[in-house]
Design a protein around this nucleic acid. Structure first.
Lengths: 184, 184
DNA sequence: TAGAGCATGTAATAGGTTACATGATTAG
DNA sequence: CTAATCATGTAACCTATTACATGCTCTA
């Protein structure tokens, strides 16, 4: 199975909620999806073009007073069916490539204390990411807590928090282990 | 910052421990590194070629009685320096693309019960992965517990277990939430 | 008038996978 | 003799990123 083009489904999904421009898509990805997804313009526009060629979306030029023209993309019935089909398929665990663990694995070949610095840095970054996400969780609950989308949104944040905290725990434990090892 | 070619460093690291063939590299990746890293032949050999062109490794044909010839790759001083430099650089959190969370985020658009099926499937897979890793942890401790590489190896497994268990917890909690939501 | 935000897209390139092609040696 | 394992590599393809190119509109 070749890695499917997940950008296609991300875009189809965003359009399933209503017509959008490429710019809108980028903005939405940078908002509520940003802690578990990302897209670049350089991929969004070509994918949009291909989706159109395959009849999954249609494009319409839109002129709005006081703002630049833009292209609005709308999901077709075929597009909606394609999206629904993807949505119901089980997700397999993706093959992982963890550069931090690669360095840990090779840690024996590093100068003393170097691995500790690397792990400590990662731990700090992770702590910042988690506290940022905690803030997002509070803000989202306050501002969107009563929308239909909220529970799902909240679930995605939930995994980010749980996984993030697990990494922090591991990093702190690992730092202790590394210190103990140095003491000999 | 363009995504650096991490395969180069993975290979450099494996060679830092002693000369190896492309085949050896693939086997080692499939062994102790398999729960956090992967490489394909179709990438290993071209990278090996490039590393050689850059003077980071040398190649030597090796004839061994009773086995097919093979190419043995050895790290040069430049290669070792390059690896050491990479090893001491801090690792930034990689941008994530989590297809499961993408489906969760769009869960509102799925038919009732569909998202539950998807999450439950993922949870099962994760449980299997964790119990496999628990077995690996025991086996590694028993067979390599006294080697110099063991503590580092063990740390990589440690993160796999912690993160994996966090995902399971999240999935079970999420399933309960989805059930509660259905009851209305 | 300059800068920020809105808006769309292409070209070059990188990183990586899969499928293909080839061949040696050993164990059953 | 045949299957499994050892062994090396290339070609085609896909996904995605970065850099580039362009232009509108509003606000300060």
């Amino acid at each position: 199975m070749p890695t499917p083009n997940r950008t296609e489904y991300a875009i189809l999904g965003l359009l399933a909620d209503g017509p959008k421009s490429g710019y809108d898509i980028k903005r939405e990805v940078e908002g509520p999806l940003s802690h578990f997804w990302h897209e670049s313009y350089g991929h969004i526009y070509p994918v949009l073009k291909r989706l159109r060629e395959h009849g999954l979306v249609t494009r319409r030029r839109q002129s709005r007073a006081g703002r630049p023209d833009r292209h609005q993309y709308t999901l077709t019935d075929d597009g909606r069916a394609e999206f629904a089909e993807w949505l119901r398929q089980p997700v397999d665990r993706a093959p992982i490539r963890n550069e931090l663990l690669l360095k840990v694995y090779f840690g024996r070949l590093a100068a003393p204390g170097e691995l500790k610095r690397v792990v400590a840095h990662y731990c700090d970054e992770q702590k910042r990411a988690v506290s940022l996400l905690e803030g997002v969780a509070r803000a989202v609950a306050a501002e969107h807590g009563s929308t239909a989308a909220y529970p799902y949104w909240s679930m995605t944040i939930g995994l980010g928090l749980k996984a993030g905290r697990a990494v922090i725990e591991w990093a702190e434990e690992t730092l202790r282990r590394l210190e103990t090892m140095e003491e000999t």
